[in-house]
């Protein structure tokens, strides 16, 4: 297993700019000024995080409720066909997260679409293509969302693969 060691600059960028990324003409320069670095160094740090597969993207995280229709969904499939079924589900661009989990419902994914009708169509297509009934679990109330949690870099080694 390869180990990715992050520089202090990279760690600070991750911990400080998961929200409040500068909205101005030269955002990387603003970050550089705040972190005592240079625009070039910040940009190359971002590129490195991207290359290492750590950075998914820099951009907005939409409020699902306001942005359209979405739901958590799950399938219970035989273990030996999990990879195959996961590939079928992944083909849908409306599926943005898809994980295998330890349970009889072993494939868990999030479906997002422009509206409820479009969402229902995707679910139906997934059922037809996989042959399994989808467990549909839309959010009814959101109590707490903190996706931009602070990563404690001193606690552990970083592993990539």
């Amino acid at each position: 297993m390869m180990t990715t060691l992050l520089t202090l600059l990279e760690q600070n960028i991750i911990n400080q700019y998961q929200k409040g990324f500068p909205l101005c003409s030269q955002p990387y320069k603003v970050i550089a000024d705040e972190l005592n670095s240079t625009e070039e160094e910040v940009l190359s740090a971002i590129l490195k995080l991207d290359d290492a597969g750590i950075l998914s993207r820099i951009g907005p995280v939409f409020n699902h409720k306001k942005a359209g229709s979405s739901t958590l969904a799950a399938l219970a499939v035989p273990e030996e066909s999990l990879d195959e079924i996961a590939e079928i589900v992944n083909q849908f661009e409306q599926v943005n997260h898809n994980y295998a989990r330890e349970h009889s419902y072993n494939l868990w994914f999030v479906v997002t679409a422009s509206d409820d009708e479009a969402l229902a169509q995707v679910i139906e297509q997934i059922e037809q293509l996989t042959g399994y009934q989808v467990l549909v679990l839309p959010m009814e109330a959101s109590y707490h969302i903190d996706l931009a949690f602070n990563i404690n870099f001193s606690q552990h080694q970083l592993g990539g693969h």
Binding site: G20, L55, V61, K66
Partner: peptide, 24 residues
């Protein structure tokens, strides 16, 4: 973008990281 943030359509704007790759 500022407007979408004020309006609440965008709940945050910034780096989206893959936690698995960071050891989580």
């Amino acid at each position: 973008i500022e407007h979408w943030q004020t309006d609440g359509l965008v709940k945050r704007f910034g780096l989206v990281v893959k936690h698995r790759q960071l050891g989580y």
